[in-house]
Amino acid sequence: MRSTVGAVPSSRAASPPPPAPPRRRRSYRLGRWDLSYSPYLYIAPFFVLFGIFGLFPVLYTAYVSLFDYELLSGTKEFAGLENYRELMADAQFWNAAYNTVGIFILSTVPQLVVALIIANLLNRQMRARTLLRMGILIPNITSVAAVGIIFALIFADRYGLINWLLGTVGVDPIAWRDNRYASWFAVAFMVDWRWTGYNALIYLGAMQAIPKDLYESAALDGASAWRQFWAITVPLIRPTILFTVIISTIGGFQIFTEPLMYGFGLVRGGADHQFQTLAMYIYERTFTGNAEYGYGSAMSWLLFMMIIIFALINFALVRRSVKGEQK
């Protein structure tokens, strides 16, 4: 025992520079840690913030959705899937889902098509090009509440601009709020007014990354401008199109302020809930009346699922149709 202990210094003295190896090993280890762990450290702020403000609320919402939880009366009792069962039979919820999908389709399809056309027009040599390119983004930077108020006036039933114009050419005024589809159209119009330019600018960015020689050789082969657009531009910006479709799906399903302002601030969304969207209905049940947090959380989770499903469906649809054009 003792001899072994005593032997240690002698063996250490034998090895060339005694303190050097550990230090070198430490810096080596630090270097390796730096290489393998610091990237995680650099992106950690996002994930920490996301965990606190994104993931935790989502999970907590799922937890709350299992309770009969009303803030006003203070009840909080475990209810299992009762909220979801009630939700399945809630006609107003499905009416709101119908409205949301309707407004979504009515706004997103024309919006993206028009954005694509505008982007293609702007992707040319023309005068005041930068001014025009920046100009189409202006509607997007206006406050959504202001847009809502102005369009609620334009689409007013009695003294509105559109009904007045229709009157001057002898057309009967349209019941912009009582008619379900008219109200959808007006809300979709507001959404498009704000977001078409934004999407056009994103498409334009993608189009400028397409090599010019592709168009040159297509032109040499005698392809028309239309053919070039469909056979070169659209397939090559497909990832961008997919991106805008997903983002529009997420935004479209959460539409809230536009229909709210359109209905003069009432979450009811028209006398018969003609344009009450899911977000409005969630707000109605969660933040007014009895403040039913449990039920509101269940609705939020179902909306979350619906957004994922619709995003996937849209993704598949667009991918397939755009691929078809490529051949």
């Binding site: 996301f50 403000f53 994104g54 993931l55 935790f56 609320p57 989502v58 907590y60 919402t61 709350v64 983002i247 997420i250 959460q254 969630i282 969660t286 509101g296 959380s297 939020s300 989770w301 909306l303 979350f304 957004i307 994922i308 995003a311």
Partner: peptide, 12 residues
């Protein structure tokens, strides 16, 4: 992720 963030705001 984006949907989750938006959804989360309900609980805030």
């Amino acid at each position: 992720l984006a949907a989750g963030v938006a959804l989360g705001s309900t609980a805030c």
